[in-house]
């Protein structure tokens, strides 16, 4: 039997119109064919919607109590709460669409996260691959941690790549400074490290600032207007262009 022939049986099967032999045969096929199962369900949905097109009839008011009473008797065991929850959710969410909608939301969120990670990666790469980029290495006398800064002068973006930098203590943050000779340090921004110790962060160099030196201090969360500690990472700028 061809696949096409099987597909043709989905609609009459969903309506219950297959003759017994064909029905049994098709049910065996359904056990192994996911696409036919989807096809059958789509026609069951049609069948379900057709019920909405039936000539209207108003149920008597007392039927509701009878249904609940009858179901109470008919139920052999206490309904597991999870099942009750599933039914309630299906009802409240409307026609059982809640789960699909929920999954769509989850996928959408995952997609957005992946997209933003990709965007951020592209942004970093674009900032690095530019002839205007200046680079400096910040080090604490040759020991870990260390840091490399890439300053895209055309776009005033600073990409911070840190190595072996532990996360700042609770309530503290790291702050990067741009220092011009004879002037007070200017904050480039605050950042923290990931548990991996290898964060890559992009910050914006304040407009008009042309630092000779950059340094990193540990500051209270939110950063400080001026450094409150001795920097633990210091480096001077050199241009590669």
């Amino acid at each position: 039997m061809t696949e096409h022939r099987w597909t043709e049986l989905a609609a009459p099967y969903a309506l219950g119109s297959l003759d017994p032999g064909e029905r049994a045969e098709f049910e065996r096929h359904l056990e192994t064919c996911a696409s036919c199962r989807v096809e059958v369900q789509s026609f069951r949905e049609v069948s379900g919607l057709l019920a909405r097109g039936v000539a209207h009839a108003t149920p008597p008011a007392e039927l509701r109590a009878r249904v609940v009473r009858y179901a109470r008797r008919a139920r052999p065991a206490i309904l597991p709460w999870a099942v009750a929850a599933a039914v309630v959710l299906a009802i409240l969410g409307g026609f059982g669409y809640w789960r699909a909608a929920n999954e769509a939301r989850v996928l959408r969120t995952r997609f957005d996260v992946a997209q933003s990670q990709l965007d951020s990666t592209k942004y970093v790469v674009a900032a690095l691959l530019d002839s205007s980029v200046a680079i400096t290495d910040l080090a604490a006398t040759g020991k870990a941690p260390s840091m490399r800064l890439y300053w895209n002068r055309a776009r005033n973006i600073v990409v911070v790549a840190a190595f072996d930098l532990p996360p700042a203590p609770a309530g503290r943050t790291y702050q990067l400074w741009a220092i011009e000779k004879g002037r007070a340090p200017v904050s480039v921004g605050t950042f923290n490290s990931a548990p991996s110790g290898r964060p890559v962060i992009t910050l914006q160099m304040p407009a008009g600032v042309q630092p000779e030196v950059s340094a990193v201090t540990e500051e209270p969360a939110g950063g400080s207007p001026q450094p409150t500690q001795q920097p633990f990472l210091v480096g001077s700028w050199r241009s590669r262009s």
Binding site: Q41, E45, S47, L49, I91, F95
Partner: peptide
Amino acid sequence: PARGSVTAWLA
């Protein structure tokens, strides 16, 4: 609910 609507099930 992932495999069909309540309406279809009840119908």
